[in-house]
Write a protein that binds this DNA or RNA. Structure first.
Ligand code: FES
Ligand code: FES
Lengths: 147, 147
DNA sequence: ATAATTAAGGACAAATTTATCCTTAATTAT
DNA sequence: ATAATTAAGGATAAATTTGTCCTTAATTAT
């Protein structure tokens, strides 16, 4: 559904949201290990998310790392997709027509639009914080390396 | 959601299902034009779908082209995804964990699994024929070039 | 039989995505 | 101030996806 880059972006952001505080900010090595992603590539992705502090914030130097402002934590998950330039996936025609519309629907449109609506709703309603909470409770994981 | 290759595969197969008969079998040029896809690339994709007549059948020579057997028309749309080696998209974890499961759910799992279930159901329940019917009725399109 | 037509298939090219590595800049601790 | 730490950023490479082109094989019409 999403590119690897966006998957890493989602997992990394959720991890940072849950693990960062004023005293403790996770760094690249920790994050990449926790979400099971290639470190250098994930670093590049966090650079995107950090531009203008749109989603993620960071500090350099000893004890530096990444964190989310309270404001950022309240953002809908969809804002991560937007920052990654991949949120059109939610609006796209499932058969790849140039636009998904009632006016010129593809043969799957009538059935798919219901699912599409729920997908959009999910990504717009759920906040980054709410996912971090699921992670914190211990019920949800951000990796599943075969043990 | 799907690769371009799979999008073309879906549109091409639906088009062939509706337009082919014993007397008239659409050829590559016609198909690519009708579904607004690059002809040579689409030809490669139809080669995949034609292997062992899994989904699409073909005949070479004058008045040759592509068609679907009655049996093939009854296949679920998911079988096209399978032939394209892309049906794991339906089962995948939305955050890219190696497996989507109740045992090790990601933070979106609880919400996403409902949508996922509907997606799987849609692709397993809908037949290629039923989509061809929507196209035939004229209500559904397989392209939307900006006119 | 011959020529024309059309899909099959191989080789290759372009574009995009994924990934690594190294240098620079900022910040902190000493 | 100096050294250590950590993110930012540039350059580049590898892998995958998307796409084209040309030759071959099968079939049909004449
Ligand atoms: S037009 Fe295809 S899903 Fe809406
Ligand atoms: S584990 Fe992520 S969607 Fe099921």
């Amino acid at each position: 559904m999403f590119s690897k880059a966006t998957e890493y972006a989602l997992r990394a952001t959720i991890y940072i949201a849950q693990r960062s505080s004023d005293e403790n900010k996770p760094g690249m090595a920790e994050i990449a290990k926790a979400i099971d992603s290639p470190q250098s590539f994930t670093a590049k992705i966090l650079q995107l998310l950090t531009r203008n502090n749109r989603i993620v914030s960071s500090v350099r130097g000893p004890n530096g790392g990444f964190f989310l402002t309270d404001k950022a934590k309240k953002l809908p998950v969809r804002s991560i997709l937007e920052a990654m330039g991949e949120d059109e996936v939610l609006e796209k025609c499932v058969l790849g027509l140039k636009q998904c519309s009632e006016a010129k629907p593809c043969p799957m449109h009538t059935n798919y639009k219901l699912i599409k609506g729920q997908l959009i709703d999910l990504f717009e309603t759920k906040s980054i914080q709410s996912l971090a909470d699921e992670f914190e409770n211990g019920g949800a994981k951000l990796n599943n390396r075969i043990k």
